[in-house]
Simulated assay, not measured.
Amino acid sequence: MAQPPGHKAILTGAVIVSVGGAALIASGVAGLLGSGEHPGESVQATAPPSPAAHRPVKTFDVPEGVVAKPMKAARPTGVYIPSIGVAAPLMELGLDGAGAIENPPLHEPNVAGWYRYGPVPGQRGAAVITGHLDTRSGPAVFAALREVKKGDQVQVVRADRSVAVFVVDRVEHTPKDSFPTRKVYGEVGYPALRLVTCGGAFDRAAGSYRDNTIVYAHLALAHHPKS
């Protein structure tokens, strides 16, 4: 897999406050999320937390065309996409020994991963959540991500029981060899979310999918339960 932007700073322990500008890698994160093309790949990410106790079961009423103010940081624990039936725990993903983003483990197909060296979902900036399209045993957490449409909600439950409710702005399908690194990881001045998985045709010769499906969304509501 290609190395994500800012990987040198991450490996030296520096705090990343921006991934915009010249530090971006033009080739993108071509192998960001694989599917069944990496069976047996070593995964060193932290173990997934238990699903949140207060998970959303339906869409929230959100103001149209409004971007909510940034939320305080709180560890994301689950992601829910009502329109395609996704309800999955989130694990933290870091970097492997080569400086590439870790994959969620293939033996946990219903687990998605949050890139912990980027913004927390709900904070200012573009938070990134990744998940497998499939595994050798069948569909995985983001198998239907390509069916998400503009206006759909993506709900991220956090450790403080708050819910960051994002609204989808657009869905993009792009070849892996021209991954839009700047758009996915680049600095933005509002709370944003990117969901990424594999897509397109499976290239048997290369042993991988040819494309990525990318969902772009903005924070529309910060929900805080009263009790």
Results as ranks from 00 to 15, higher is better:
Met71Tyr: 02
Lys72Asn: 13
Ala73Glu: 15
Ala74Lys: 05
Ala74Ser: 14
Arg75Gly: 10
Arg75Met: 12
Arg75Trp: 09
Thr77Met: 10
Gly78Val: 00
Gly78Leu: 13
Ile81Phe: 00
Pro82Arg: 08
Ser83Gln: 08
Ser83Trp: 01
Ile84Met: 02
Ile84Val: 15
Val86Ser: 09
Pro89Cys: 01
Gly94Asn: 01
Leu95Gln: 09
Ala98Ile: 06
Gly99Val: 07
Ile101Glu: 03
Glu102His: 11
Leu106Ile: 09
Leu106Gly: 12
Glu108Gln: 12
Glu108Val: 02
Pro109Met: 00
Val111Ser: 00
Ala112Phe: 02
Gly113Met: 03
Trp114Met: 08
Tyr115Ala: 10
Arg116Thr: 11
Arg116Phe: 02
Arg116Pro: 03
Gly118Lys: 11
Pro121Lys: 08
Gly122Val: 03
Gln123Trp: 07
Gln123Ala: 12
Gly125Phe: 10
Gly125Met: 11
Ala127Met: 13
Val128Ser: 03
Val128Met: 02
Val128Ile: 15
Ile129Glu: 00
Ile129His: 10
Thr130Trp: 01
His132Pro: 10
His132Val: 03
Asp134Thr: 01
Asp134Met: 09
Thr135Asp: 04
Ala140Ile: 10
Ala140Val: 00
Val141Ala: 01
Val141Arg: 04
Phe142Asp: 01
Arg146Gln: 09
Arg146Glu: 03
Arg146Ile: 03
Val148Phe: 08
Lys150Asn: 10
Lys150Arg: 12
Val154Met: 08
Val154Ala: 03
Gln155Ser: 06
Val156Trp: 06
Val156Met: 06
Arg158Leu: 07
Arg158Trp: 04
Asp160Ala: 07
Arg161Ser: 15
Ser162Phe: 05
Val163His: 05
Val163Cys: 10
Ala164Cys: 04
Ala164Asp: 03
Val165Thr: 13
Val165Ala: 02
Val167Asn: 04
Asp169Cys: 04
Asp169Gln: 13
Asp169Phe: 02
Glu172Asp: 15
Glu172Gly: 09
His173Leu: 12
His173Phe: 11
Pro175Gln: 12
Pro175Asn: 13
Lys176Trp: 05
Asp177Gln: 14
Asp177Ala: 07
Phe179Gln: 05
Phe179Ser: 00
Thr181Tyr: 09
Thr181His: 08
Thr181Trp: 06
Val184Ser: 07
Tyr185Asn: 07
Glu187Phe: 14
Glu187Thr: 15
Gly189Phe: 04
Tyr190Gln: 14
Ala192His: 12
Ala192Thr: 11
Ala192Cys: 04
Leu193Val: 12
Arg194Val: 05
Val196Glu: 05
Gly199Cys: 02
Gly200Lys: 02
Gly200Ser: 07
Phe202Tyr: 15
Arg204His: 11
Arg204Tyr: 12
Gly207Thr: 05
